[in-house]
Every structure is written in C-alpha cells, then in structure tokens.
Design a protein around this nucleic acid. Structure first.
Length: 490
DNA sequence: ATGTTC
C-alpha cells in the first residue's frame, strides 16, 4: 500500500451503505463515504478518497466531510463532496468546493401528456433540436443587453421572467426561489463577456434537455405530491452558468491559489495563517474580503444559471406550442443546484451552527418541514433530481419527510463517469450507439459524434446502483424512475 | 464543466 492510500487503514463500516474514514494526520474531522464495500473497492485506483480526506483539514470544517454515492475525482475537492464550515469560527469558503460550473443544476417539468399524445415525434425532436441551442459556443443565446445582464445577475429567475424568459409562477418551484442574494455584482468583465451571448443555451458535455417518460413509481404518496404518474411525459434540463460561471471560478481560484506557498507537504497562507494539503483547495475565511468577493460573484453566477434554465424552459414551451398548439400544461416540478455553496443553519454536535455548506456535485435534500419548501411538499420532502445517462434513466428522490439527513441535508447528483471522455471516444462508435439507442426508442440529437461517444451509457456508472446506495444510507428516498425518449445533447 | 490552450 502506498503512502497515498493511508485512508484505507482508517476505514470502517459506519452503517448500511456507509463507511467512515477516521480522522488521521492533518484531518480535523472524520470523512464519510456513501457506499458499501463493493462500491468503495471500485474506487481502488482513483485518488478521490484522498481528495475527500484532504478536505477534512479545511479550517473551520464541522461535522464530517462527505462523499455522496456518485463521488469521483475532481479539482481539489472530489465531485460528490459535501463540506460544511462554521463561518462564525473562521470557517472558509473555497471555489474548488463548488466547482467550475457554478450552479450547474437540474430542472424537471411535468407535462399533462403521454408519449402517444405527441404526434410525429421525429418531427418534434427536430423542432426541439432547432430551438434548443447546444454545444460549447453561445450561439443562439437570447439577446442580453448590459442592463438585462445586471438584472439577471442580481435577481436570477425573477429577472428572467420579467424579460419574458420564464414564468413568475415557476419561481416557487425552484431552490431558493431561483434567487441567490447578492450585495454587489462582483463579476469580472471577462466573465460578463463570456456570459453575454450564452443565456438560453445548453452547453456541452453531460448537459442535456430530455423528454422522458415516468417508467416506475416507487413512492406513491410522494409521486402524487410531485404530480407524477406512470406513463406520463416529463422534461429534464441539465445545465449551468456556462462560460460566465467558469470564468468566475477561474478568477477566484487563480487569485486564491497565489496566496498559498509550499511548506513541507502542505500549503500555507501567511495572510490567514492556515495550511491546506492541496493547493487546489485554496480557500479564504468566509468573512474575509476575498471570501466575500468569491461568495458574491458565485451568487451572481448562480443567478445566471437559474435564468439559463428558465430561458431554456421557455424555449421548450415555445416548441411544444408550435407542435401541439399548447404547452402540454408544462409545470416546473422543481429546479435544484448541484454545484453551490450555501449559508445554512445546522445542528452540529447538539449546537446550532451557521455553516457554509459546499455542495460540489451534490444536491440539497430538505426535509418536508423546512420553512423554505413550498407547502405542496410539506410532509413529503424536497424533490431531489438526479440526472442519469441518455440510455438508462434519471431519478426523482425526496428528502426526509421531516428534519434533516446526516449529510447536512444533501444527496447524490448523478451516475458519475466510468470512462474518461478520451477513453469513451476511443472505444465507442457513435453511429452504432445512435442506432442501438434508436432501437430502444431513444432518439438522440447530438451536436457532434464525439459527444455521443463521450456520453454513452457505458461511459457512466449504474445510476440505479447510486440511488440504491443513497437510499440505504438514508439520505433520500426514491420516488420515481424516468426513461428518456428524446435527447438533445451539447 | 470550459470561447475544450491566456
């Protein structure tokens, strides 16, 4: 065993589908891995558990550092990571704990339709492809003047609705009502420029817009509350803050990393007098100027992402009206962030704590008695939207009926990659894959053949397995499984 | 994830 894999010496079972890495070396708290033995062994050759261990030494960390069941290697922090710091006790905020695609997230819409109600599905798919701009460029975005950009960054989905890129009634069906408070708009000119053309565009990689059909109801009570029934058509939009959020992250990662100098095998900040084991965990005390500058810019980028999912929903509504003569009674079920840091109150070791909860590839999962949740989710729990891959399934889960789960009210966010993009391109033939998916009744409109190969179901882990582990660890409970039939891919 | 190499 290498020095680097010391975490295995400290691993113990902590419950059903739950393992603990006991505090050792520079760790300030324990780290929790959601998964059974077999699941953890599948990570024997990647360094993501070490990344999780590293996060456990961040100043002000409280509770445990967590890795959700779909954890994998990321920039500094593992993707799937949940890290909470006590911001009244010098706790830090770290851009690497949020990720490059700030407020990447998922919106799910219910339609009062079954698949058979969509006549000439092939034609509808082509219409959607024509109206949903996809791919790395911002080509096809809405016309965003400087004034409108300001309102989007400060007011998120509400501003989008005011500009005609969303509906006001959708706001109550969004995490934080689609609005992250910002005092100042601290976003660089470069970030603004990158965002100027891409509002209302999907992006690339694992981002998508899918028409899905509810193929299995697991929790009838919750499904009723969520307005879901077997055979029903739903739409799922998975995208984030595009180049704008990426630039905000880059700006702050660059400036914060410069504040750390190597000292033995750690990195030290003279300014704040603390050490981190990996420079990519560069962080600032939440209440420092640097911490606040990042937080405000992150909020603004998060608002842009909410507005982006709103604008795409509006384009979907337009496409439905053009094809069906109505929008199919499309309603937003919920819209969640899975790359964000939030200030939240939690009880840690029986004491109230104002925490900065970093969720990087993790979804908030509020209990059904939480004040922020819309009343229709009372006694049920927050909808947790988990996008899978384009040939298998996505899932809707629910947070606890009341109270919070052990992971600061967090759950998983997806299937997680099994093959790297380059491995997938090398080994998966795009045309053959497209034919295979078509034979299963799944039409994929991909921007390029490479995207098809990279996003192949076999390039992903089994989302059903991630859901099973998440449920066994009692983080969230499965409500419904959704199967795609029409996929728009960047 | 990303104007996929400032």
């Amino acid at each position: 065993m290498t020095e680097d894999a010391r975490w295995r010496d400290h691993l113990e079972k902590a419950g059903p589908s739950l393992h603990r890495i006991k505090r050792h070396d520079a760790m300030l708290v324990d780290a929790m891995l959601v998964g059974d033995k077999a699941h953890i062994n599948r990570h024997s050759e990647d360094r993501s558990p070490e990344q999780l261990v590293n996060t456990a030494s961040l100043p002000g960390i409280v509770g445990n550092a967590w890795a959700m069941a779909d954890w994998h290697f990321g920039y500094g922090f593992p993707i799937g990571g949940v890290v909470a710091t006590d911001i009244e006790a010098g706790g830090v905020i770290s851009p690497g704990g949020v990720g490059f695609d700030i407020n990447c997230g998922v919106r799910m819409c219910t339609l009062d339709l079954e698949v058979k109600d969509i006549k000439d599905l092939k034609k509808f798919g082509r219409r959607l492809k024509g109206r949903i701009p996809a791919g790395p460029s911002g080509k096809g975005g809405v016309d965003l003047s400087e004034t409108k950009m300001d309102s989007i960054l400060s007011e998120g989905a509400k501003a989008a609705a005011e500009h005609g890129w969303g509906e006001h009634r959708d706001l109550i069906a969004m995490e934080s009502n689609g609005l992250l408070e910002t005092q100042e708009r601290l976003v660089s000119e470069r970030a603004l420029k990158r965002g100027s053309l891409s509002l209302g565009t999907l992006g690339s990689g694992n981002h998508f817009l899918e028409l899905q059909v509810v193929d299995q109801i697991v929790d009838k009570n919750a499904a009723n509350a969520f307005g879901l029934r077997e055979g029903q058509v739903t739409a799922m939009i998975h995208t984030g803050s595009r180049g704008l959020g990426h630039q905000v992250c880059s700006d702050h990662v660059d400036s914060l990393e410069k504040k750390f100098r190597r000292q033995g095998n750690m990195w030290h900040s003279d300014e704040w007098d603390f050490k981190i084991p990996d420079r990519q965990l560069a962080a600032a005390p939440f209440h420092s100027n640097e911490g606040q500058a990042y937080f405000e810019a992150m909020q603004a980028a998060g608002n842009y992402a909410f507005a982006n999912r709103s604008a795409l929903t509006q384009r979907l509504r337009d496409a439905l009206r053009a094809h069906l003569g109505s929008d199919g009674d499309l309603e937003v079920l919920y819209d969640v962030c899975h790359n964000i840091a939030k200030v939240e109150n939690h009880v840690v070791h029986n004491e109230n704590c104002t925490c900065c909860v970093h969720r990087k590839g993790a979804t908030r999962a509020l209990g059904g008695d939480h004040a922020e949740l819309a009343s229709r989710f009372a006694g049920i729990g927050q909808p947790v939207l988990v996008p899978g891959d384009m040939g298998t399934a996505s899932w809707v889960l629910a947070g606890p009926t009341k109270g919070t789960n052990a992971a600061f009210g967090s759950s998983c966010h997806g299937a997680g990659r099994a093959l790297s993009r380059s491995q997938a391109r090398k080994t998966i033939d795009a045309e053959q894959l497209q034919n295979e998916l078509q034979a299963q009744g799944i039409t994929v409109h991909a921007n390029t053949p490479n995207v098809l190969s990279e996003e192949a179901p076999s390039a992903y882990k089994d989302v059903d397995e991630v859901i099973r582990l998440t449920a066994e660890a009692e983080l969230a409970r499965p409500v419904a499984r959704l199967r795609p039939f029409c996929v728009i891919k960047g």
